[in-house]
Write a protein that binds this DNA or RNA. Structure first.
Length: 283
DNA sequence: ATGGGGGCCTGCCGGC
DNA sequence: TGCCGGCAGGCCCCCA
């Protein structure tokens, strides 16, 4: 259930087995995931060479030598399994077909990429590479949180006058692209800001302070993912799921980790999503 | 324009 | 052991 760091980790794991390789066969086992697959997706993938993999927000983009780009979104439960490739002296065997294996890509180097997604909130689409920014899923995305255009003046201006709770604002992909529920909770804890606080009731200085915290939280998670990636690939070829220590997420009722804070982490529901926070440390 | 809620799917976990 | 409600990290759409 990937946010930006998990998607980055999956992309990094796919790159060595996909980049430069020809897709010799594509099995598309159902007509859709969250949305219908594009017409003739299997045929349009077959025989193309993957020039490179990129990430935009939570989307993985595979540029093909056909002039099209394969867009992949993992949704909530999407997983990528790599098999049939060599890691050091170890060769991953191909697994038996599993429930919810929706798309399988066969690479010329013998690697097989299986997209498995139980809840089918994931997506795949094909778009013209040179017009990728026009795609309806990409078009309205805000800046990359780790990129140069996400900075304090931008965030201050973007939140100015907005009465929406800061939690909702940071989850809004038009404000900043790639943050999800977990990392927003973690960022707000580090910032000492209550998730229900209205955006226009936060000082410019505190808004500015969110920018480096977003970068820190995501950067640390990506580093953790990178270090666990080797382990996962040697274990079973599955990408994107790694243990990461959260300070508030999922810790409802547990002790706040701030030194000398006696309070317990609380859970509230905002816009249908759980928020976890410390009522003492976050105001 | 903006914010809140519903819905999409399946699986898992805890309580009875 | 089985059933049931609640919950899940994303995202779009509709409504007030």
């Amino acid at each position: 259930m990937p946010e930006l760091p998990e998607v980055e980790t999956v992309k990094a794991g796919l790159a060595p087995v996909m980049e430069g390789q020809v897709i010799v066969r594509a099995d598309v086992n159902r007509p859709d995931l969250r949305w219908p697959f594009p017409d003739a997706m299997a045929a349009r993938l077959t025989g193309t060479r993957v020039l490179g993999l990129r990430r935009r927000s939570k989307y993985i983009l595979a540029d093909l030598d056909s002039g099209e780009t394969l867009l992949i979104h993992l949704g909530m439960s999407g997983r990528m399994l790599i098999s049939g490739h060599q890691v050091g002296a170890f060769h991953h065997p191909h697994p038996a077909p599993a429930k919810h294996d929706h798309v399988v890509l066969y690479m010329a180097n013998g690697a097989r990429i299986t997209f498995n997604d139980a809840r089918r909130f994931g997506a795949m689409d094909l778009l013209p590479t040179h017009r990728q920014d026009d795609h309806w899923l990409i078009r309205d995305l805000g800046p990359e949180p780790l990129g140069n255009s996400f900075h304090a003046p931008y965030l201050i201006a973007r939140l100015k006058g907005r009465k929406t709770p800061i939690k909702s604002a940071l989850l809004d992909q038009r404000v900043v692209a790639g943050l999800g529920n977990i990392y927003v909770c973690e960022v707000l804890f580090r910032a000492g800001i209550h998730p229900a606080r209205k955006s226009d009731r936060i000082s410019a200085d505190r808004i500015a302070g969110l920018v480096p915290l977003v970068r820190d939280v995501l950067g640390e998670a990506i580093a953790a993912g990178g270090s666990s990636l080797r382990d996962y690939r040697q274990a079973d070829g599955e990408l994107g799921y790694f243990q990461h220590v959260f300070q508030v997420y999922g810790r409802d009722g547990a002790a706040c980790l701030t030194p000398r804070c006696e309070k317990k982490i609380q859970r509230i529901v905002q816009a249908g999503r759980s928020s976890f926070f410390c009522p003492q440390c976050q105001r």
